[in-house]
Nucleic acid binder design. Structure first.
Lengths: 196, 196
DNA sequence: TATTGTTATACTCTATAACTATA
DNA sequence: TATAGTTATAGAGTATAACAATA
C-alpha cells in the first residue's frame, strides 16, 4: 500500500512558530542519520540568497563552533551555557540568581535550573545573601574553581583550533566586526529626520 | 518557612549535557522576565575569557540577529529553518526529503516535520518522485513562490538592517572570515612536532 | 505592592530507534 | 540487504504564569 502517500498528515507544530520555546537551536551535527558533521556547502546545491546573508554566514560558523565546543567540554559535562555561567560567577562573585539570569539573557526560571545543575555537580554553591533573606549569593566551590580552570584551558584550545583558519590579526578584526553587530542597533525605524 | 533554602533539590537535567537534544538554542530575548532584549555587555560585569573568545563573539551576534530575524518574518510564520528550507527547495527543485535533511544538516525525521509544516502552510508540495515510488519530489507551490519572494525581501531588509553597523566592505570581510571558520578544519590532529 | 527564588506547565527543536513500503 | 518516508519517544533548552517568603 501507499507507503506514506495516502496518510492524513496531522498538525504537530503547524502554525505556531514563535510563541515560545527555544529561539534557535543552531546546531545539527553528528546525528546517526546525516553522516557526520554539518556540510556548510553541499556539492551541486544552490544556496540562493542564503550565501549573501551575513546572518546565514554567522549561523554556519556558529554551528561548526558549537559542535567543537561541546566535544571539547564533554568530559566535564559542561555545555556552553554552563561554561558562561561558571565564568560569570567566577569573575563576579555573590551575584543573585536574578542578576545571573539577566546577564545570561535567560528567564529566572532558567537560571534556577542552570544553577541547580551546577550545584549538583558541586561546582557552584548558593550562599545566603547578606542583607536579603530572600536571595542567594552565588559562589564557586573550590572544585568549581579547579574545574573552571581546566575547562577554560580546554575552551581556549578549542577556540584557538577553530579560529586557526584565521591569522591573529584577522581574529581581532572578526571579533571587532561581530562586536558591532551585537550592539542594540540605533533604532528600529530608519527615521527620516533624525533619531527617534 | 525557609523560602527556598531547605528544600531537596532534585535532578531535573543534572548530569546529562550532550547525549541529544537541541545543540544550541542561541537566543534569549524578549522574555517577560529579563526586561527586553539581550544585553551583550551588562554594566559593571566582568566577562572574563568570554570577551576574548571568537566563539562567544559569534554567539552574541547570533543571538541579536536571530531575534531580529524572527520578528521580521513573524507575520508569515516563517522561522529560520523554514526559510532555509524554502530557499533550498526553491533553488533546487525535486529534492528528496533525505537530501533536504542532509543539506540542512538535520535528521530525516526532522525534515519530515519541517516539510509537514510547510505543506500545511501550502508553501511546499510533495510530489511523487519519477523513478522511485518510495520517495517524494519536493517543490514549491505557486503560493510558496509568492510567499518566499516576500519573505526573501523581508529577510534582506532584516539582514541589511542588522549589518548596517558595518560598511559594505566590512560586511564582505565579515562574510569572508566567517566562511573560513565554517570550513571543516584541515584536520583534528595536524601537529607533527608542535602544539597540543 | 514589588521582588526573589521556585515550581508547574507547555512549547520548539532535535535525535534515536523501530517500522512499512519499496529498491 | 539497503533505502525513503514515517512514527513514536525522549531529551535539552527556554518561556510563561502562579506561588510563598521576604522586602
Amino acid at each position: 500500500m501507499t507507503t506514506a502517500k495516502a496518510r492524513p498528515r496531522r498538525s504537530r507544530e503547524a502554525l505556531a512558530p514563535n510563541p515560545a520555546g527555544a529561539r534557535d537551536a543552531a546546531s545539527p551535527g553528528g546525528q546517526a542519520d546525516s553522516g557526520g558533521g554539518f556540510d556548510a556547502h553541499v556539492a551541486d546545491i544552490d544556496y540562493g540568497v542564503l550565501d549573501s546573508l551575513v546572518g546565514y554566514a554567522i549561523r554556519r560558523a556558529q554551528i561548526r563552533i558549537y559542535e567543537d565546543f561541546v566535544q571539547s567540554l564533554a568530559q566535564w559535562h559542561i555545555t556552553p551555557p554552563r561554561f558562561s555561567a561558571l565564568v560569570i560567577v567566577s569573575r563576579n562573585p555573590h551575584l543573585k540568581l536574578t542578576e545571573l539570569a539577566r546577564i545570561l539573557g535567560i528567564a529566572r526560571s532558567g537560571a534556577v535550573l542552570l544553577v541547580d545543575a551546577l550545584e549538583e555537580m558541586k561546582l557552584v554553591a548558593r550562599r545566603p545573601a547578606p542583607h536579603d533573606r530572600r536571595a542567594y549569593s552565588l559562589v564557586l566551590t573550590p572544585a568549581g574553581r579547579r574545574t573552571l580552570a581546566a575547562a577554560t584551558a580546554a575552551v581556549c584550545e578549542h577556540d584557538a583550533r577553530v579560529a586557526a583558519a584565521l591569522t591573529p590579526q584577522q581574529q581581532d578584526t572578526l571579533r571587532d566586526l561581530l562586536g558591532r553587530l551585537a550592539q542594540p542597533a540605533p533604532a528600529t525605524k530608519p527615521d527620516p529626520a533624525g533619531t527617534v
